[in-house]
Structures are given as C-alpha cells and as structure tokens.
C-alpha cells in the first residue's frame, strides 16, 4: 500500500519524455543534522522553564495555561522544523542523461531553476575542504561550461569526487551520442 511513497523513478517537473535521471543530489545529511540538532535544543526550552518555575506555576494555578502555551510553542516548533527540512529537500541538483538541472528553493515563493546541456560541459572539478567535510566525505563540485562565465556549483554534496566522475562520464557519453547534433532519443522540448 505504501508503494506510492517508497518506489520512485525520480521524476521531476519539466522532465522530457525518455529523459533518464542519473543522479539526484542534495546537500550532505550533515547539513540537515545540524539544523535538526539546533531545533532539538529549542525544544528543551519549555522543559527548562518548567524546571526553574515549577513551584511558581503550581502555586499560582497556572499549570493548565502553561500546558497550552507549551503546546502552541511545540506546534510552532514542529512547523519550523518541517519548513527547514522542506527547504533542504527542495534544493536539488538533478543529473540526467541529457542535462544538469538545478532547482533551488529559498522560501515558498522564491524558486530558482536553471539547466545546462551535458554537451556544454567543459571541465568539472571537486573540492573537499575542512576537517568535517573530509570526515563526512562531502564537498563542492564546480562545472565549467562553454558559455562565457557560465558555471554550475553543487554545494556540500556527498561523495563529491564520485559525482565529478559521473558527470564527466555522462558528458562524454552525451557528446558521443550527439556527434552530428542529432537527437537519437527523439526528446521533446521541456523546461523546469
């Protein structure tokens, strides 16, 4: 019954017919974990207040009111956590067998989408800098394009070196398949 949420072909808005998704990349889970830990600390606040003000709350008969305030706080906390996780999940880089698509969500009404044909990829480099990045194996991948000043940067993605290799391999396969500037798969036009 839960197949609908556990089986996916990683389809995305603007995907062209026949276009195959090779990679779906998000920032490393370390980034999400740090956000969740920060939120967890905020959840301790009502408990701390209760520990220090327990006798006052009980003496003045404000226990039920305090419970209501705590529930409102927890509900706002839950929403805030979900918002942070949503923003994390909606910032993705998709590598298909034809192009690279970036989808950045900086708020519910602030969405940036861009795409780059694999035929325009000239050079790819990966950088893992810092102790934590080395320990958890995440870093930045920079893709230089044929157009002037054009470059794509995947920030803080896991296994940056492997991703760089996959992108370069996909780009060379794409170039081989499209040598005569013809589309062998007959893809229609689309856009994110």
């Amino acid at each position: 019954m839960l197949d609908i949420i556990t089986r996916t072909k990683n389809t995305f808005t603007g995907q062209r017919p026949g276009e195959r998704v090779i990679l779906v990349l998000r920032r490393h889970w370390y980034i999400l974990a740090s956000t969740i830990i920060a939120h967890s600390l905020l959840l301790l606040l009502p408990a701390l207040v209760y520990i220090f003000a327990r006798s006052y709350i009980a003496r003045t008969g404000l226990t039920s009111l305090y419970a209501l305030v705590v529930m409102i706080y927890v509900l706002i906390w839950w929403y805030s956590l979900a918002y942070a996780v949503t923003m994390y999940l909606l910032n993705v880089w998709v590598v298909t067998d034809h192009r690279i698509v970036t989808s950045e969500q900086h708020g519910f009404f602030n969405h940036i989408a861009a795409e780059l044909s694999l035929g325009k990829v000239q050079n790819t480099s990966a950088a893992v800098t810092g102790v934590i990045a080395t320990m958890f194996n995440f870093g930045d991948v920079e893709i230089e394009t044929a157009s002037e000043g054009g470059r794509f940067i995947f920030q803080k993605i896991p296994a940056a070196y492997s991703v760089k290799d996959i992108i370069m391999r996909s780009a060379s396969e794409y170039t081989q398949q499209h040598q005569n500037n013809q589309e062998p798969h007959g893809l229609g036009s689309g856009g994110i």
Partner: peptide, 11 residues
C-alpha cells in the same frame, strides 16, 4: 508537488 524521490514523501 516539487519533491523529487522518496524522502520528501516520507517527510
């Protein structure tokens, strides 16, 4: 609507 893959649906 916009999540790609399994994790957004589970969240």
């Amino acid at each position: 609507r916009f999540g790609i893959g399994v994790p957004p649906k589970i969240v």
